[in-house]
Amino acid sequence: MEKIEDVIAPNEDVTDELIALPEGDAEGGRAPVRAPKRRKTDKEELMGWGMSCIPILGFLIFGFIPLIFSLYICFNQFKGLRLNTAEFVGFQNFQDVLSDSMFWRSVVNTLFVIGATLISLVISIIISTLLTNCNRGKKIFQTVYFIPYVCSMVAVTFMWQWIFNYNYGVLNAVLRNLGIIKENINWLGSESTFMPVMYVILIWGGTGFNIILLMAAMTNVNRNCYEAADIDGAGMFTKFFCITLPAISPTIFYLLITGVIGSLQAFTQFQVMAPSGGPGYKGLTIVFYLFRELFQEQGGSDIGIATAVGWILALFIAVVVAFNFWGSKKWVSYDE
C-alpha cells in the first residue's frame, strides 16, 4: 500500500517546478523498486503525460488546426481548392447559402429524416418492452434485431433498391398479387414515394442500436416496483407508463439526442440511393448539399460555401445539444 505516499504526492507536485520533468527523462530506464519518493513521482508524471498526450496531440493536429482554418475559409472566397486565390468576402458565403432555395430544400428533407428517427425510437421502445418480458427466445430475437446495425449502409441501400425496384422488385409484385395495386408503383422515381422509401431504410437500420440500449436500461429497472404494482393491481399499460417509462427516460433521452444529431448528418443512404439528389431533389440532405458544393458544382469545388454549410449544420447541432441540457432537467428523472 502506498496510500500515504499518494496523498503526499499531489502537494509535492504543486511545489515542484517543471524543471523536474527533464530530470526524470534523463534518468531513463525503469525506476528501482525502492526509489526515493521524488524520483518516482517524476517518473509517474512523465509516463502520465506521455501516455495521455497522444490522443490530445492527434486532436490538436487533425481537429484543432482544421477548426481554426475553417474560420478563415468560411469568410473567404476561393477558386477551387487553391488557397492563394483567397478573397475576403465577410458573411457573403453564409448569405449565399441561406438564400439558396436548394439549401432550404435540403433542410426540409433533413427534418424529415429526424421524423424517421422518432418513429424508429418508438418502435424500439415497444419491441424492447415486449422483449424484456419474454423469457424464451429472448437471446435469439435480440441477436437478430441487432444485425442491421453491423451491416454496411451501402449494401443495405442496394438491398432496398432491389426490393423497391420499379419493374422487377418484390414489393410491387407482392402488392400486385394481393390486388392492392393494379399498376407498378415507381417508388424511387416519384417525388411522393421517395421519402417514404427512405423512411423504410432508416427505420430498418435504426432500431437495432436503440433496442440494445433500451433493453439494458429496462433490465436494470428495480423489480420490486413491478411487484408492488402487481399487489396494487396495476395493469400492463399502467406499469409501462408509470414505472418503466420514467425509469428508462434517461436512456430514451440519450437515444433521442444522439439519434437527432445523427439524422442531421444523414448522407450515405441518400447519396447511394440517388447520387444526383433523387426525384425533385427529395434525397438532398444538408450533408449531401455540402458534399455537392465540395465536388460537383460547376466551376469546381466551392470550399467557402461548403464550410459555411458546415458551420450552419454545427449550429443546428448546438441547438439540439442545448435542448438536451434544458430538456433533460425538465423531463428526465435521474433518481438512482
Binding site: 490522443p55 490530445i56 486532436f59 487533425f62 481537429g63 488546426i65 482544421p66 477548426l67 482554418f69 475553417s70 475559409i73 481548392l81 488557397l83 448528418q265 450533408v287 455540402l290 465540395l294 470550399i303 461548403a306 464550410t307 454549410v309 458546415g310 458551420w311 449544420l313 454545427a314 447541432i317 445539444v321
Partner: peptide
C-alpha cells in the same frame, strides 16, 4: 480538452481538413 474534442462537430472540420 479530450472532453471538448467530442463537442467539435465533424462537419465543420471536414472541408478544411480536406483542403489541407
Amino acid at each position: 480538452i479530450l472532453l471538448a474534442t467530442m463537442m467539435i462537430p465533424g462537419m465543420v472540420t471536414l472541408v478544411p481538413a480536406f483542403t489541407i
